[in-house]
Design a protein around this nucleic acid. Structure first.
Length: 129
RNA sequence: GCAGCAGGUCGUUCCGUCGCUUCUGCCAUGUUGUAGGAGAGGAAAGUCCGGACAGCGAAGGGCUUCGCACUUCCGAAACGGGAGUUGUCCGUGAGGGCAAGUACCGGUAACAGAAAACAACCGCCUAAGCAGAUCUACGGGUAUGCCGGCAAGGGUGAAAAGGUAGGGUAAGAGCCUACCGGUACCGUUGGUAACAGCGGUAGCCGUACCGGCUGCGGGCUGCAAGGCCAAGUAAACCUGCGUUUGAGGGUGGUCCCGCCCGAGUAGGAGGGUAGGCCGCAUCAGAUAAAUGACGGAAAACUGUUUCCUUGCGGAACAGUUACAGAAUCCGGCUUACAGACCUGCUGCUUUU
RNA sequence: GGUAGCGUGGCCGAGUGGCUAGGCAGAGGUCUGCAAAACCUCGUACAGCGGUUCGAAUCCGCUCGCUACCU
């Protein structure tokens, strides 16, 4: 796994995994302007320990597609730069970690604000694990 | 110089670090390599029109229904575009917006007003016809009434049956005449045409909207169309109709002509699934949806400050750099948009 | 992605071209010793901007917001 990469395999792409996050017993962290939901999963046959993420920005709060895209890119970027915070824990537990970042503000925040929120959330996940 | 109108073009650039999607090659398959290439728009938007494409019985006829409607050219087509015609509204102006087939038939026109369309409430008139007090020279016949006539005047209204003047009359009226305005028709000139100009003829003379009528066009549904693969469940239950005496279905709002399938079918309640591939790209081609993040320069614009300068300008600081993100693909329309540039033109001001 | 529909006071909701009904809630008053009930009175309502028309909630465009359906 690249140290600062974020390829397809590190993103949640199937309906099954989304269902797990929103229907099962989940852990939630508020870190304005984000709400972070995460869940540890046992590895399936042949899988390696990995963290998979998705970013959600509701149309109800941000009307323009350009702005929603911008927020998603900034959030992914902030995770990409700082994901090493949790990579150690994942290898230690030998599990799969699913994370979803839900944007809860109604205005577009700059990169620094989002970055701080992501770092705070990742640190909490690492400490609680 | 300032303000503006019309048409067109563009709509940030460069460097560094770290990333994303995809294609090709290589090493030989790293579910995470390496090298090189490609990677949002003028509106990608709204989904308002039109087409390609796909499925649905041949998509045939009648009725119904929907859309369009000055002329001409372009266009595959469009409720599209160019140029033009007429009317009307806005603007000092350059210009801009809107409208336009037809009038045989029908409907509507609140409130106000006499009346909103074969007009007659007030009003004006009493010539002709009938009756006829007073009067009478006994022949009549006045006032008046009846029967009627008229459309000039009436504070309304968005709109009132062409306007002015004269004649005419009982009173009046295009009833008649002159001039003016409009309409229709004829001729002629120009124009492909809409139409315009000129000449003549006809007293032919209010308006708006809608329906109707006429002509032309349209089958419907839309890539969640449609096709394939994989996985899984329930061939079970209830009700109606039916098995060659034919239920039901096979595209449209309905009917008809004809054709086909047919032993099940329609509804209810309940259960399962909701993954992948094609469609889907002539160098964007994703699919929880890539095309970016951060930092530093440059450029442009705006504002402020002070200084220099006759002035054009220069410097410093601050701010701004829009609207907006492809999802089958094209042609238009509409809407959003910081700012810059080009061409033609208009108004005002100044100088010559 | 595509296809439909809706928007009328704080809330619900009628209104098919002529002053925008009605109910609930709210405010003030009458009544009462005080309340309730009843009665009377009151208010920047047609999502926004244009167009057609003498006149638009209504008809026609565009914009905004909301909802439903198609897999």
């Amino acid at each position: 796994m690249k140290k600062y990469g974020l390829s397809k395999s590190e993103r949640i792409k199937t309906r099954r995994e989304v269902k797990l996050l929103f229907e099962g017993k989940i852990n939630s962290i508020d870190s304005f302007p984000l709400k972070v939901l995460y869940r540890w999963e046992e590895l399936a046959e042949g899988e390696k320990p990995v963290a998979k993420i998705m970013v959600s920005v509701p149309h109800k709060r941000i009307k323009r597609a350009v702005k929603r895209n911008l927020i998603k890119r900034r959030t992914r970027e902030a995770y990409r730069i700082n994901k090493e915070i949790i990579t150690g824990k994942i290898n230690e537990r030998n599990q799969k970690l699913l994370i979803v970042f839900v944007y809860v503000s109604s205005s577009v925040k700059d990169f620094d604000t989002i970055k701080k929120a992501v770092i705070t959330a990742l640190n909490k996940i690492a400490n609680l694990a």
